[in-house]
Nucleic acid binder design. Sequence first.
DNA 1: GTCTATAAACTGATAGAC
DNA 2: GTCTATCAGTTTATAGAC
Lengths: 208, 208
Amino acid sequence: MNTKERIFDVSLDLFSKKGYDSVSLREIADEVGIKKSSIYSHYSAKELILIDIFEYFTDQFENNDLLNSKEFLLTPDNKALLQNPEMFYHKGSQAVKEMLSEKRNLKICKLIFIQMHHNENIRSFFKNEILIKPLMHWTNFFRILKEKKVIRKDTDPKLLAKEYYSFPIFLLLEMFVKYDDIPQSSIDNFFDETEDHILFILDCVKVK
Amino acid sequence: MNTKERIFDVSLDLFSKKGYDSVSLREIADEVGIKKSSIYSHYSAKELILIDIFEYFTDQFENNDLLNSKEFLLTPDNKALLQNPEMFYHKGSQAVKEMLSEKRNLKICKLIFIQMHHNENIRSFFKNEILIKPLMHWTNFFRILKEKKVIRKDTDPKLLAKEYYSFPIFLLLEMFVKYDDIPQSSIDNFFDETEDHILFILDCVKVK
DNA sequence: GTCTATAAACTGATAGAC
DNA sequence: GTCTATCAGTTTATAGAC
């Protein structure tokens, strides 16, 4: 592993444990085993490490083959979605699970949760990438199911999106408060619970 | 208002905006208009201000006449609960709304959310008072409704408690990320949305 | 005599200069 | 790498108010 990558990993590790502000460049340098000034050969400012970390995170999602395949496009003619929304969810959930099982990604996730109120970069990242975009995505999910009469017409896609999405966010918050290092079993459990949850919601609103 | 109260209010205000660690005693003293050593005539340590703030918060709930009345006891023979769970919820919700409409309490709430990962006191307060206790309360709520056959017997009270409770926590998180100062309209909206939410859940699981 | 405010000084951590 | 200045929370002694 080259130095830049080591700076990346050490920074992420420290940030996700102590928060961005409370970690000094000196600390990072010490842990990597280089001099503080040497960091500037790779990152010209502390903030750029943070931005690099976020880029890495979003890249993971933007380049995920499954999540970006035609099969997963939220369009009104997506047969996989309309015929079996439970399976549609399950497949997507598995793809996300694979990503969050990678230690780096989980650490970034935790970093976002613990630092969103203390850093403008992280706050806006949370607001856009963790709140607004996913809520739009799930609103679309339910809107199409409603349009195509898979779920009842007296439902509100926007409310259902919140009904669904508040649950996994709550579980993540719970995990990050409970654990410093999150065991794989908790991650597995997280995906099991969210799957039970979507089944519950779909069962409530599906046209029988 | 006496000095101790002014220290309390100024501290709460600063803590809820900048977080506990980033506020110095000097800052508090300056804002109050006294010298920092004078704070020690009222609080023998910075941490005791924080503890006082939490005590104030829990006292509000423990001394609320309505929430602690017989009418609100979660027992299997509570007629108000069994005959009209929606109204039971509504009354409790109104009581909590009154509390959160008091600026101090909302600030304390925000303080807890923004600092839970950075201070052991706050983290354990969040874990116990915001996560564990309310989840137990709502588990009881659904457990009794299930026992008394108000809701279906194939439901899981613990899951329903999470289904319900994750939603308001999500909304609070959303509010604290969005606003520095939360407008009353958002608080009103919060209680409207949570009420819609419990109606949705109850409608899903009630024996028809 | 008790309560409150303040000045001065101590200690530990840390950031910047050299 | 070491030195130094600074700032954090805290402690103590003291002075004044009631």
